[in-house]
Design a protein around this nucleic acid. Sequence first.
DNA 1: TGAAATGTTGGGGCG
DNA 2: ACGCCCCAACATTTC
Length: 507
Amino acid sequence: MNTVIHWFRRDLRLTDNTALIEASRRANRVVPVFIVEDAFRTGADVGPARLAFLLRSLAELKTALSRLGYPLIVRRGRSAEVLPVLAKEIGADAVFCNKRPEPYAQARDSHAFNALNAAGIGFESFKDAVVWEEQEILTQAGQPFTVFTPYSKAWKARKLPPPRPALPPAEFSAVGRGVPAAPISKSRRRRRLTGTVRPTFLEQPLEIRSEPLPVDPAELGHPLRQTLPPTGEAAARETLRQFMSGPVLRYGEARDFPAADGTSQLSPHLRAGTIGIRTILAQLTRARAKAKMPAQRESCDVFLGELIWREFYQQVLFNFPHVTKGAFRPEYDRLEWSGEEGHFQAWCAGRTGYPIVDAAMRCLNATGWMHNRLRMIVAMFLTKDLLIHWQNGERYFMQQLVDGDLAANNGGWQWSAGTGTDAAPYFRIFNPLSQGEKFDPAGEFVRRWVPELAALPPTLIHRPWEDAASARPLNYPRRIVIHEEQRARCLAMFAAIKRRPRPAVQP
DNA sequence: TGAAATGTTGGGGCG
DNA sequence: ACGCCCCAACATTTC
């Protein structure tokens, strides 16, 4: 092929990028493109943190590309309309991209495929975001797994594919520099791939129109974001390096304590695609091989488990797309959530009167990130203490989270609500008090995010309502509900749908 | 990737 | 020495 468009979506990196490598292997020149779709402005599930992270990472990708002499082409509009026009404009033979599991992405890609196909232009998408995708790990019966543990066993039983070679910068074509290059020989292409020869650039500049990249979410109608984790491919690699240089070896114990920095911080990068999964696994394998103590190797395995959870939920989403609309098990759509709007507002604002819940929500609102232990606690609290439908929490998380991912977020919420695959049984209800005391024993995390409580000793910080001296105004809300009462109500809510109509009497 | 209720056991105080 | 009670510690069951 002569010219291939690489359509960047959630793969904002130049290394370990399957479609990009394929494009540079098979085409004489590659034109990198990003399309700013209307959904960025209107999508109910897109929030300022994630958008800001994406736009900054995109700007850095653009800079990295232009340092190599290749401009990133930016267009606005619907991809199914933009791509055929652009392809015609520059004489592209095909569009390459990396697959996404979300239903909306499936629809978008099939529209793009049809439109390109009608224009006589090729379209290919590649497995890239996961090691094993939806049809590759199945039960004996050939069905998708719906329980994590056997899925995880099957996943681990497969041999990991080798990490992809780094893409030599020379493999990017002379985008915007000339008319299509002459076909190159097989042997020369092979040598190009190994970096021993550079492609020839032609002289005549070919102007490809490109629109300015939005620099912050405000341009797309979102509020400005104050704090963000480090963005872009370089930061992702540094985050990975740092994590693998030590913290991963203590991950097993450390990951459950929100006040400690025991987690990888890779989730926004996995979401935006500023790092590739194969790169992470290669580094993890290396760290595990170097680990001296059994506990350190176990820690590596615990982290691997989290990466497998990610792939588990992606294949659940692909194979059971109805989870975006309701419960994985439809009988749970009959639950009658009786929560109050005011309680939902209190939960969002971090004013429920339960310190660990409020600290977690305030952290989310301020930073766009929340520790996974806390995600479980606040999700359990919203669903099982406030009796509010999990979809409200799911939506709020997607608006706030910098790493919000449809598959993982939906999976997590359904797990917490007890409606999903491999769900926490409905009767598994966290006690926000004991969870707080267990995982934030010194109250350090609460103190950081709920300054009203900073003066309370560890014995009281998770239960300020027991403070004898709290006759003094704390400017901290009383508990909006009593856990023990709500727990009983929750069990009753689930019991109500367990009553089945009697089976018809057989003659 | 719970928590609460209930049951069991065993040590120690005590009459 | 024995029975009884209390209670912590653990185990099991139940939600």
